[in-house]
Amino acid sequence: MTAPAVVVEDLHVAYGKTWALDGIDLDAAAGTTLGVLGHNGAGKTTLIRTLTTLVRPTIGRVEIGGLDVVADATEVRRRIGVTGQYAGLDEFLTARENLELIGRLTGLRRTARTRADALIDRLGLHEYATRRVGELSGGSRRRVDVAASLVGDPSVLFLDEPTTGLDPLARAGLWDVVDELTTAGATVVLTTQYLEEADRLADHIVVLSGGRVAARGTPAELKRIVGGKILHATISAHQFADLPFIPDADRVDGTRVRISVTVDDAPTAIALVAELHRGGIDVTDLDVTSPSLDDVFTHLAHTSGAHR
């Protein structure tokens, strides 16, 4: 059986007397995407910095491709690619010049130009190749930044909130790149604030809270934490006290309240709607949905203090 591409066992990282990571265990197989989710301060960035050799573990073991990130840090850096939250490119160089420069810095020498051209072809960057990076839009810069992280043909690619600030079209383009990479056998570790992004890309997800793992599993498994179906409806605020159950609620305006309640299955949801009708509750904007990762986050925040 093939060994995992990423292995983290009992990882602790301390900043002074504060544990930024407090006993993390996870792994990721080759050719898969691992999503790392969590609210700000949950430990996502510290985890990525540790996995990419920038932060030394206080306690625990971290291996990338069978190599220890402390003992074999130099070799680990040769095998990984990293795209951070902000494009790390020289704004005065063209996209091609940036890629070629990175290639030379990583030891490609005479083949650096060939590698740059290959990535331009692979990621469809021809229209940006001869333009200075400083002249590009945010989405275009991000695509060039992803290309830069692929210059060394990494076996593991770390994407730390790579689509923050991108428009939907640019975000979808990066999703296609991730699909292509994992299909080719690379492993992707992705942190993101966009839950639909994790739902779309991740084979497995780890949710961090306070430096610990609050939940883990496939997107489908995490959704089952919440329940079978979620009923959403808008009702008159003065009828809220007449409800036969206690829902989650958010005030829409001075006269209306948006309510949500989790039930086991669709027939139960239908029966609940009928009960509201019999009780004379004025319901508008009614819908019944399967749980989303947003619902998982809300559930974890209420039950385990995930949002802190």
Rank of each mutant, 00 (worst) to 15 (best):
G305Q: 07
T289A: 14
L108R: 08
V189D: 12
G280V: 05
L123V: 08
H299T: 13
A186L: 08
G139M: 02
V296K: 04
V178L: 08
A214H: 01
V82M: 13
V70W: 08
S292W: 00
G66S: 09
F240H: 13
G173H: 07
R200G: 03
A269V: 03
Y15C: 06
V177E: 11
G84L: 14
L293E: 00
T18E: 09
T284F: 04
L105D: 08
T298R: 14
G254C: 07
R141N: 02
T83M: 15
A112N: 05
L11K: 08
T18P: 02
E135I: 02
A184G: 09
D295M: 01
L93C: 06
I230T: 02
G31H: 04
T284P: 08
L195T: 05
G139C: 06
T284N: 12
L231H: 01
K229L: 06
E9H: 12
I24K: 04
T114S: 14
A95L: 12
I24E: 02
R143G: 06
T163V: 11
V69M: 10
G60W: 05
R113C: 01
A95I: 07
D10P: 05
V213F: 03
G103E: 07
D72N: 15
A266V: 10
D25M: 09
T163A: 12
T94W: 05
T268L: 05
L166T: 00
L136D: 06
L99H: 04
L169K: 15
T58N: 12
E275M: 10
A184S: 15
R115K: 12
E127W: 04
P267N: 12
L286P: 07
H232P: 04
